[in-house]
Nucleic acid binder design. Structure first.
Length: 232
DNA sequence: TATAGGATTGCC
DNA sequence: GCAATCCTATAG
């Protein structure tokens, strides 16, 4: 198998990293075998001025990984139920990360199906095994123990892969109560493994909830930070 | 110390 | 539509 992406890949502006991550391959080498799949959906969380970023209230014990070395993982427990996987980005000291939201399964499908099957039920279709950030970590066996792991040295790594600019779409992030104005979700539009309400955004439809007017505070805090906008 | 709420998911 | 489930941040 190819070598993991180097640390320099992550030490860049977060929207650039987010775009570049679509099409790469997420790999988890563990005792049960190798799990792998193509990343098809990500979201950027950038800095203390981003109200949805865990660094929005400044440094705390939980968000310490965001402030640390790029190329490491930030895994946290969401809703007390799901472990969500982030790749830490930007220079050391700048809190930012890319949330990995969906993957197209390629290797280790049998293990993924087992992990994603509850009770005696039939497993989800292949395209749904790693669709959604919580489903993805469950299928890949990624837990809180992987927090602050190193994507350069494993056991969880990310490997080279590309998709054409024409194949990706930028949309608002999903499931937030704040920071919905930022168009920082990047998806491989054609992929059946992309999460979110059926037909939403990947086919250019409207957002699921009407956008709330941006609060004055958000606008003000935004002024300081450099404009980071996707080119497509 | 108490409590509200969250980068979700799946079932009613 | 809503419960599950628990840690974090924030208020008292």
């Amino acid at each position: 198998m190819s070598r993991p992406l180097a640390r320099a890949f992550y030490a860049r502006p977060t929207l650039e990293v987010a775009r570049a991550l679509v099409g790469t391959r997420l790999v988890h080498e563990h005792p049960e075998g190798v799990l792998a799949g193509r990343i098809v959906e990500v979201e950027a969380y950038i800095g203390e001025s981003d109200p949805a970023c865990h660094a929005s209230a400044g440094p705390t014990a939980r968000n310490a990984p965001l402030y640390g070395e790029p190329g490491r993982t930030y895994v946290y427990l969401n809703y007390g139920l799901h472990c969500l996987l982030n790749a830490v980005t930007e220079a050391d000291g700048r809190p930012a990360a890319v949330l990995i939201r969906a993957v197209e399964p390629e290797l280790g499908l049998d293990v993924m199906r087992r992990r994603r099957t509850r009770g005696g039920a039939t497993p989800p279709p292949d395209a749904a095994l790693c669709r959604g950030p919580g489903n993805l970590t469950r299928a890949f066996g990624i837990t809180l123990a992987h927090n602050l792991g190193d994507l350069v040295h494993g056991p969880v790594t990310i490997h080279r892969g590309r998709v054409a600019d024409a194949a990706v779409r930028w949309t608002p992030r999903i499931g937030l109560t704040r920071g919905e104005d930022r168009v920082w979700r990047c998806v491989l539009a054609e992929s059946a493994a992309v999460s979110g309400p059926a037909g939403w955004v990947t086919r250019g439809l409207a957002r699921p909830r009407p956008a709330r007017a941006m609060a004055d505070g958000d606008r003000r805090r935004d002024a300081g930070r450099g404009r980071q906008r996707p080119r497509c």
